[in-house]
Amino acid sequence: MRGPLHERPVYVTQTRARHRCPTRLLVVTIHPAMVRWCSRPIDTGHPDWTLKPLVLGPEGVPVVTDAEQARAAPEVAVLSAMAHGQGEAAAAIGAAFLTGAAGLDEERRTVYGDLVLSSLSAAAKRTLEAMMKSGYQFQSEFARSYVAKGRQEGILEAKAQAVLVFLEARGLEVPVEVRERVLASTDVDELDRWVRRAAVVSDARELLATTGS
């Protein structure tokens, strides 16, 4: 959830009015400082209504290093990579996801795979590549092909497509100028940022507005 704290009661009430159903405010973040900031109660000024956001931070996300668990709950495995992909378990998290990704459809393999790999530390990515070179056999053809092409060739196009697919999967309209800019990018780090941003932006144009963040 983005925007100033004082706007968040507006999000809740507008969403409830639009969909006519019970509404909760859930903030998902991988930054501990953001967890503390977003957890602060919001005094609306109305009697008996202090909005207390629900916040899911790194400590609330399990470390998924078991392939069977990743296969059973791939979305949790993706969150695990995003929350813990810079820690000591990063390589194990990546290996678990890649091994357990065989049952996913092609679209989710692309989107989830890019989210996982873009969230892993450089050391974890090197470890996965070393595992492939040493003869480690991942159980899915997807994992073998994806890690094998972990170099520059093919990565730019895969990441750009993942950005667009993820935006579209979330129901966001992708303007022509945004699509062309994403497909034209030759910066792996920029595309990695966009893949992560695609999970949280409310408008596809925000990707281009936050290039430097």
Rank of each mutant, 00 (worst) to 15 (best):
I155Q: 11
A160S: 15
F166R: 15
A160R: 02
V165T: 11
A162N: 03
F166M: 11
V165Q: 13
G171A: 08
V176Q: 11
V163T: 04
A184R: 10
L183D: 04
L167T: 03
P175M: 10
F166G: 08
L156F: 10
F166I: 13
E180I: 09
G171W: 00
R170C: 08
E177Q: 15
R179G: 02
A184Q: 15
A158M: 07
E180M: 08
V178F: 03
L172H: 03
L167W: 01
Q161K: 15
A158F: 04
A162T: 03
A162W: 01
V178H: 01
E173K: 13
G171F: 00
E180H: 14
Q161L: 15
L172F: 04
V163W: 02
L167I: 14
A162R: 01
R170S: 06
R179H: 09
E177K: 05
E177L: 09
Q161G: 09
E173W: 05
L156S: 13
V176S: 12
P175I: 11
A160F: 03
E173L: 06
V174F: 01
R179K: 14
A162K: 01
R179A: 06
L167C: 06
I155A: 12
V182G: 01
V174Q: 00
A158N: 14
E157C: 06
E177T: 13
A162E: 03
L183E: 11
E168L: 10
V176W: 05
L183M: 15
V163C: 12
V182F: 01
K159H: 05
K159E: 11
R179W: 06
A184C: 07
R181D: 07
L156C: 07
G171R: 03
G171L: 03
V178M: 03
V176F: 12
L183Y: 08
V163E: 02
A184S: 13
L164W: 08
P175Y: 10
Q161A: 14
R181H: 14
R181S: 12
G154H: 12
R181V: 06
A158E: 11
V182H: 01
R170D: 09
A158T: 11
V182M: 03
A162Y: 00
L183C: 07
R179Y: 09
V165Y: 05
L156R: 11
V182W: 00
G171V: 01
R179F: 05
V176I: 04
E180G: 06
